[in-house]
């Protein structure tokens, strides 16, 4: 069993490493080049967009992206604990519609009406959590079901008509109150209220994730559910709380959106569930849980919002914009994957 001293002991891994070293470097450089190109392109389009750097546009941009940012914060928490919520758009529509219907048709005072909307959103989120944990149904399926159901309930509630509307059998008691309109279209010292609320939610989300036991539990559950359980974390309760919070935030986003449009309807927020997921993923949160944060999601939502805004200013038609947004999502995540794989 004598070892041959002249034979160099190169491990197989070492040989593989040597073999890919050069191409890997090439890929790494390539990734950086494309990234720089993309950023330059983005800057070019932003800087050449007519009226991008105007106060009106900035205000408009802030107000428009506010609901997206609020949803993205909730979705970040859901995704960090290794879940996903497809129902946020529908919950947004239902809650916004409910609050509006309660005020305009049922004659509820403004604050109870808004609280009713928020509570309804939280309740739907709570139900999501309950179905997922106690019913042991995958997050995707449970929230998909909720997405369809909540949208249906919202349609029943509004009769498929905008709120407020004169076409309903019920007599209209009031138009939307100033308080709700202020949420979406008002301002505080010149800053759009919605945007300020969104930033407040981002800050709250950051505090929850980084400075509370609940936030820590989210990372633990998403990083390794079994290990979290063995470490004494109540996984079910953590999940239910997360989805409840998500529902509450969806309802808040709904109120802001109603305020901006000065009208509610059961079909609003269609597609925002996927947009919020895209913002979270673009922001660098791991779609399989355990890693991420709300600051990234804020940036993700802003990038998408700015891009949409810039394309609008460039007069690109909506159909083509969809193509660009889709490619953006794939592109960003693809870059992230390549970057991780090749360490660029």
């Amino acid at each position: 069993m004598a070892k041959n001293p002249s034979e160099p002991r190169v491990s197989a891994l070492g040989r593989v490493g040597a073999w890919v070293a050069t191409p890997q470097l090439r890929v790494r450089l390539g990734i950086r080049a494309v990234l720089v190109f993309a950023v330059l392109l983005f800057i070019y389009y932003v800087s050449t967009a007519p009226r991008f750097f105007s106060v009106t546009n900035a205000t408009n941009l802030g107000a428009r992206t506010a609901p997206d940012i609020i949803l993205a914060v909730g979705q970040t928490m859901v995704i960090i604990q290794a879940g996903i919520d497809l129902s946020v758009g529908a919950v947004l529509a239902f809650s916004g519609s409910l609050a509006s219907v309660a005020y305009c048709y049922w004659g509820l005072p403004v604050w109870p009406a808004m609280l009713l909307g928020l509570a309804a959103g939280a309740l739907l989120g709570f139900i999501n959590g309950l179905i997922i944990t106690k019913g042991r149904i995958p997050d995707f399926i449970a929230t998909l079901g909720m997405m369809v159901t909540a949208r249906g309930v919202a349609l029943i509630l509004t009769g498929g008509l905008p709120v407020p509307s004169h076409l309903t059998a019920i007599t209209l008691k009031a138009y939307l109150p100033q308080e709700i309109i202020w949420l979406g279209s008002g301002d505080i010292l010149g800053f759009p209220t919605g945007a300020l609320i969104a930033l407040l939610i981002v800050a709250a989300g950051w505090v929850i994730l980084m400075h509370t036991g609940f936030g820590r539990a989210l990372f633990a559950v998403g990083g390794n559910r079994e290990a979290a359980r063995v470490s004494g974390i109540n996984v079910d309760r953590t999940k239910i709380m997360t989805y409840t919070l998500m529902g509450l935030l969806a309802a808040l986003a709904g109120l802001v959106l109603v305020g901006r449009m000065n009208s509610a309807n059961a079909l609003m927020g269609d597609g925002t569930e996927l947009q919020s997921i895209a913002a979270v993923v673009i922001g660098g949160t791991n779609l399989f849980g355990g890693e991420g944060g709300v600051i990234g999601s804020l940036l993700g939502a802003l990038i998408m919002g700015i891009l949409r805004n810039v394309l609008n200013l460039h007069n690109m038609q909506d159909f083509a914009q969809r193509v660009v947004m889709g490619l953006l999502i794939i592109g960003v995540v693809l870059f992230d994957q390549l970057r991780r794989r090749y360490g660029a």
Partner: peptide, 15 residues
């Protein structure tokens, strides 16, 4: 099965 690998040392110790 007992550690959250993606969390830091302090986070795991106090889990």
């Amino acid at each position: 099965d007992g550690l959250i690998l993606r969390l830091t040392i302090p986070a795991n110790i106090t889990l």
